[in-house]
Design a protein around this nucleic acid. Structure first.
Length: 204
DNA sequence: ATGACGATTTACT
DNA sequence: GTAAATCGTCATA
């Protein structure tokens, strides 16, 4: 039996959680019982009320972002561009609306089901590209808005499993500015994106 | 009630 | 490289 990742770790600050999630396994269990999973290879930290790029900038608290104000370990899933979903892991202390966006996963289990979930586009997609982007991983792993607020510490259908990182893993972690936030002023350039250097499953 | 805008992806010039 | 797709969410009125 594989141990779950998480517990008190979710309560750390978003930069720490973003780095610690790299190399761990994101698991989605379908209603059929089939497991879809992959190793997390790319994340971004969103720092809450001060962070102009965050949905909770200036303390915004609406129905959509309510999970971010909840206890660490909840999922926050939002819909954007009229067609895409993106998944976050809420972290920090309860009442501190910070989170980590999961941007890319390297598929491990359920690759056939992931490809099927992509529909026509999946046919010509290489395994390592099935979850190479925040909206792609939600589509491939069937993570929709119904998972916003899901408690990943307890859920049987969406959670993170602990993976033993290989020696020297920390040296393979790269850092860069976040993707797709050109209008966030000084926050645009802050080094809050973390990724496994050399992974073929990175976004874009 | 209305208008502007996305924490993106894909297709096309 | 640029642009289209497409609609929920949020701010303004």
């Amino acid at each position: 039996m594989t141990a779950r990742w998480g517990g008190a770790r979710y309560g750390a600050d978003p930069v720490t959680v973003a780095r610690d999630l790299l190399g761990q396994r994101l698991v989605r269990v379908l209603d059929s019982g089939e497991r879809l999973s992959g190793l997390i290879v790319e994340t971004e930290a969103y720092l809450g009320v001060e962070d102009r790029a965050a949905h909770t900038f200036c303390g915004r608290r609406t129905l959509r972002v309510e999970p971010m104000w909840g206890p660490p370990g909840l999922a926050y899933v939002y819909f954007t561009y009229g067609m895409h979903h993106c998944m976050n892991v809420v972290c920090g202390r309860e009442g501190e609306p910070v989170a980590v966006l999961v941007r890319a996963v390297e598929p491990v289990e359920g690759i056939g089901a992931m490809r099927a979930a992509r529909g026509e586009a999946g046919r010509s997609t290489a395994d390592h590209r099935l979850c190479a982007g925040p909206a792609l991983l939600c589509r491939s792993m069937r993570i929709g808005k119904e998972f916003s607020g899901e408690d990943m510490r307890l859920s049987e259908r969406l959670f993170v499993e602990r993976v033993r990182r290989p020696p020297g893993f920390a040296a393979r972690i790269g850092v860069s500015p976040r993707v797709g936030i050109p209008n966030a002023g000084a926050w645009r350039d802050k080094p809050l994106r973390f990724f496994v250097m050399g992974s073929p499953a990175l976004s874009r």
